[in-house]
Design a protein around this nucleic acid. Structure first.
Length: 425
DNA sequence: TCTGGGGTCCTAGGACCC
DNA sequence: TCTGGGGTCCTAGGACCC
């Protein structure tokens, strides 16, 4: 008993690093390096998709744009109504991956335990590192200044005793700030915040909580946990723990091993009304998914297809395979079957292909139905991957895509896969 | 007038087995 | 003919995050 008590008492120091307006900052830095005379961060500007491709929403905004009431996720034309002089720049995911990688390698100088949480967020376990870089606040300022000087963009750093409080702290005043949220500060710094500022409280949960007269994080923290459990089941218990700052997951540096699924989806430039076109899109998506799967040295056991109609209704269909695979053809065949089984004939706006239940690719079990060409197919896929990696993903394309109506390899943000967000931290 | 794309986890119901 | 529960797997859908 003594031992477990001592372990419980072991205090950790966790930092959460959050890039301020990440996409926009990175584009601004890049433009300045190329000799631009305006800094996107200083003017009302957003990163957003193009209207004609039907991807016109705000992905990131500058602080001056925020002053006009522009919100992330909002449609571009609406944002322009709020601010007619708004500058809109297209997204550049390869740039973001490069910037993110540069940040990651700098942060790793300060602890062996760094977890990449998303393209612009990282957790750092600073426990025991005081000897090298000083007190946590002092170290956080050093990191922040070094990032600004060497990489050219600003970050917020939140310091807490676990990942949850560190993350909430980094979300306090922005930009270019260091904040703490220690356990003793929870009642003063966290409880007065609106309940939707709590990690895991989104639009729907906020509405439900507000209807129960729970308006602040403090209200939630002081609600009877049994009552929350009766309303939300285990999620209620999670909410209560988070509202009280209770969270103890480790900062894990283990990335690729933790990937649960790989998927790509795309909004098509026009509504798809026939099967043949849908098949082409599905093949194009499968090309990216399968390539990423092979790059992760994994096979999948489940394939799923998602359809979003022009009316924005979506539904999905999935199937467990007889045997795991990473072969493009095999995944595509299943995807096409799934599509045929569930498509109700509506106009299609968006299609997605996802694989899950991943396993290693080193001992793929053969099945009774195995055809002798399997090894050949896999070798062919690997050869194509190699050529695409070396000469670009459009260097080798299938005959069905020559009309260029549909991209031959669609979806995919970056080459570097890592475990993304988990809702459990 | 129009609403992206990448993820994770949880739940509920039905099938199936013991 | 009518009746159990418990456990696991599979699938669809919905919540959340960035």
């Amino acid at each position: 008993m003594r031992i477990s008590g001592d372990i419980m008492a072991a205090k950790r120091t966790i930092m959460h690093i959050d890039v301020n307006s990440a996409y926009l900052s990175w584009q601004a830095v890049y433009d300045l390096q190329k000799g631009a005379d305006v800094d996107l961060r200083q003017i009302p500007s957003v990163v957003g998709g193009s209207h004609e491709d039907r991807k016109g929403i705000v992905l990131a905004k500058s602080i001056p744009a925020k002053a006009f009431g522009i919100q992330t996720g909002e449609v571009i034309w609406q944002a322009k109504q709020k601010c007619p002089d708004l500058v809109v720049v297209p997204p550049n995911y390869e740039l973001y991956m490069k910037a993110s990688n540069a940040l990651f390698s700098l942060i790793k100088d300060y602890s062996p335990k760094v977890q990449r949480f998303s393209v612009d967020e990282m957790f750092l376990d600073y426990t025991g590192m005081e000897y090298f870089f000083g007190e946590p606040i002092e170290a956080a300022y050093k990191i922040k200044e070094r990032v600004k000087k060497e990489l050219g963009f600003t970050i917020n750093i939140g310091i807490g005793e676990n990942k949850l409080t560190a993350k909430i702290a980094s979300d306090f005043k922005k930009p270019d700030m260091v904040h703490t949220l220690y356990q003793r500060e929870i009642p003063t710094k966290m409880w007065p915040l609106p309940v939707e500022d709590l990690f895991m409280v989104g639009r729907k949960t906020k509405k439900k909580l507000n209807e129960m007269n729970i308006k602040t994080i403090g209200d939630l923290a002081n609600t009877d946990v049994k009552f929350l459990y009766s309303r939300f089941k285990s999620f209620g218990y999670l909410l209560w723990r988070y509202a009280n700052g209770i969270e103890n997951s480790p900062v894990s540096g283990d990335r690729i091993m933790n990937i649960k699924g790989i998927g790509n989806s795309t909004t098509i430039k026009f509504d798809v009304e026939d099967k043949e076109t849908a098949f082409k899109v599905l093949l194009s998506l499968t090309e990216s998914v399968a390539m990423r799967l092979r790059a992760a040295k994994a096979c999948c056991s489940v394939v799923s297809v998602e359809i979003k109609t022009s009316q924005l209704n979506s539904y999905s269909h999935q199937r467990k395979l007889f045997a795991p695979t990473c072969i493009t053809d095999e995944i595509y065949t299943v995807a096409a079957e799934l599509f045929e089984e569930c498509w109700k004939g509506e106009k299609i706006r968006h299609l997605g292909v996802r694989v899950s239940q991943l396993s290693g690719d080193d001992f793929v079990q053969g099945t009774f139905f195995d055809d002798v060409n399997r090894e050949k197919k896999e070798a062919l896929d690997c050869a194509i991957d190699y050529i695409r990696l070396k000469y670009g993903k459009h260097s080798i394309i299938r005959g069905v895509f020559v009309d260029r109506e549909i991209s031959p390899v669609s979806g995919g943000v970056g080459e570097d896969d890592y475990a993304m967000m988990s809702s459990i931290l």
